[in-house]
Design a protein around this nucleic acid. Structure first.
Lengths: 135, 135
DNA sequence: CAGGATCCACCGTGATACTG
DNA sequence: CAGTATCACGGTGGATCCTG
């Protein structure tokens, strides 16, 4: 708390009030904590094609372990992005489907995916340049 | 500013061959690895207001340690989202500014922030419901 | 079939101290 | 001012085995 008040008077600061999430109560962390993990986006992509059962998802996403599929779907259900329907048959049968909000989440993920694909090469190029200079 | 128009056209039909990133070569992981970490979005928000120096960023983002600011800016520079300019004065002076691609990344982050804010309550409600049922 | 239960390796993050 | 260096920790994810 050494009062180092550095009034920099950058005219750009006053233009934006607080930024779209600078206040940190926009809830973007909850969303990014989902999207950011290893499998959520892939599960969303698969479920955006239609209703899927557990092993259908498992087979559709290579490298995804049984455990992580359980964890991922559970988190998606908890936040209301996915609806789980279990039929008490033998053997058991469980269906997963996107909720309306889940479809919204998937759509924003698609926006990200589109932007990522468009800038993929530029990012890779920048990275190579940086790595070459900082070997 | 963050009013980026989102043409989403919900891809629930069979029209999608493999999904927008199901093939996993759309580069979305590179982007999500950045956006997903703890401080990148906040740094992007701050830099979207204008050029900033190291300690300006440090002071602007509460809770962000010196070390993590270094790590975060370095990663952003490496991928070409931020440009670093160091003036060899004494004491040293370093400026950070968004590149054009960095502004694009910030814009997509704002799209996410907008959606997050719009669905914040719904997510919290779903989570409370889930937690109540699975206590 | 659809998970649950354990154990473990990794690494992103934080706290602290030091420096050109 | 703008970092670097070191240590420690907690959570995420992977592998394996077990079950209603």
């Amino acid at each position: 708390m050494s009062a180092t008040n550095i009034t920099v008077t950058s005219q750009l600061t006053d233009a934006v009030p607080l930024g779209p999430c600078g206040d940190d109560d926009c809830g973007i962390r909850d969303v990014l904590d989902r999207l950011g993990d290893r499998w959520t986006v892939l599960v969303l992509v698969e479920l955006s094609k239609g209703v899927r059962r557990f092993n259908q998802l498992h087979r559709a996403i290579p490298g995804l372990s049984q455990r992580m599929l359980t964890v991922t779907t559970k988190r998606l259900c908890r936040d209301g992005f996915v609806e789980r329907t279990a039929y008490p048959t033998i053997p058991p049968q469980v269906e997963y489907r996107l909720t309306d909000m889940g479809r919204g989440l998937a759509d924003t993920a698609f926006v990200l995916a589109d932007w990522s694909r468009a800038n993929k090469e530029a990012i890779a190029a920048a990275r190579d340049r940086w790595d070459a200079e900082h070997e």
